[in-house]
Design a protein around this nucleic acid. Structure first.
Lengths: 250, 250
DNA sequence: CTCAATTTGTTCGTATGTATG
DNA sequence: ACATACATACGAACAAATTGA
């Protein structure tokens, strides 16, 4: 049988996606538990009910629940039902700073690991064209940890004119903006920050200990000095589940 | 015509994951284009080169590129090569406002559809306990469209004390904060806004025309008046792919 | 102009994983 | 548990268009 022409089956599936259904369901239920919709100790709906609700087969639903059971989130008892064991770890929010004070606050308990260190480099992309690009930057790719959780992967570019002013040890201890202001003593006249939302690609997922396509936040920062020169560029990827932006408008 | 040389960087191996390889690859390359690693007009590495780099079969790689071609990101020419068309970031960003001016700016071309309208209701969750909860609120679930794209799903609660001051038609035309300030004329002394990142659950996905587990942004807003009463609560879910927050720090 | 190399397009066959009934 | 259908992934061969020697 040839596959030319209109052998296309008109399937109007709602969750038509390349991501396996059982994974979608697992995520959905994980979120329900986290949101408190399914409370600790609760009996969750039966497999039959869940199947009807989500429009999938029993085997698929059981596969999804199997994942959650393996994660320790639920317990299943024959002829009794399925129950919520615990909540997925209450997450430690990370505030993406939206003012100077926040930007310069030391992140307590953060450890910075240097993955790449190129002494002479030029940023391939300049997120905010607000100033003159310097001739050469020190490029660092750094991974930030809080405890055993990597939460930020950032490519940092620092103007090589500041090279002499920054001690080596500082590169693995401070945020990029602190390096140029506090340590190198540069007067920054403008900082731009852009946050967008995406999903983890393969490389990011591996480095951040995330599943592929889990949400992440891209945070790009650019800082210029008095002479209008771009002295720092930081292109960072935060784990989406720890990002939180609080704003107060008076 | 520039020819982008094949990166000799040793690439991470593709995980044996539940997410199809061709999707992983598409995401990876989409990101490369967005990051400018593959610039506009560039010829990207040949299929063969990409296969070797990523360790996949030709057919798989072609399937990934086929997706990008369908999205209009690249163009492929037999015997010539594959070229970058445009950047994915050329979409219509929606700015989640982070200051008063932005909050009150009318979103041009936005249409608001009312899904639920409860005259007397009490918000089940109060995101920011900064004031006194009123005795009764008007609860609206509204879906915001730009053209044919739903981009925001919001549960809005408005203090019923303001009932008489707001004409019916306004409810399907204005943002919640505009309703209470511009229309009802309430003097707001404090607004809190919190943004977090998550993924679309089943209901959200259906209402926003998203695949399950695509990234979304949760934006919660609370406003109090002079007497410290919470006059407005808005719990919104934005499509992740259109959220963008620009900040400027001087 | 022809020929060879390059590069994408197309089509087999086969194996594996996922979802349904 | 089993059979069936479909999507995914691989490998290989060949076709078609472009370029340059």
């Amino acid at each position: 049988m040839k596959r030319k022409g209109s052998t296309t089956t008109p399937r109007a599936e709602l969750t038509r996606s390349a991501i396996p259904r059982y994974l979608q369901l697992a995520t959905l239920f994980r979120r329900r538990i986290q949101a408190g919709e399914w409370q600790l100790g609760d009996q969750i709906p039966t497999v039959e009910e869940l199947c009807k609700e989500c429009g999938v087969a029993r085997a698929t639903m059981r596969q999804a629940l199997g994942l959650l059971e393996a994660e320790g989130l639920i317990s299943r008892f024959r002829a009794k039902g399925t129950f919520v064991n615990e909540r997925p770890q209450d997450r430690l929010w990370l505030e993406v700073e939206s003012d100077w004070k926040g930007l310069l606050t030391t992140r307590s308990g953060a450890r910075i690991e240097i993955l790449i260190d190129e002494p002479k480099s030029v940023p391939s992309v300049v997120p905010h064209p607000i100033g003159e690009v310097a001739s050469s930057y020190r490029h660092l790719r750094r991974r930030h940890w809080r405890g055993k959780v990597p939460f930020l992967l950032a490519d940092v570019y620092i103007d090589n004119h500041l090279k002499g002013k920054i001690p080596e040890a500082a590169y693995s201890e401070l945020t990029a903006l602190r390096l140029v202001t506090k340590i190198a003593g540069v007067r920054i006249v403008d900082v731009r920050q852009t946050l967008t939302i995406g999903t983890a690609d393969l490389e990011t997922a591996q480095l951040m200990n995330l599943a592929l396509n889990e949400p992440v936040a891209y945070v790009n920062r650019t800082a210029i000095d008095q002479r209008g020169r771009i002295v720092m560029i930081s292109n960072g990827i935060y784990r989406g589940d720890i990002v939180r932006i609080d704003t107060r408008l008076k």
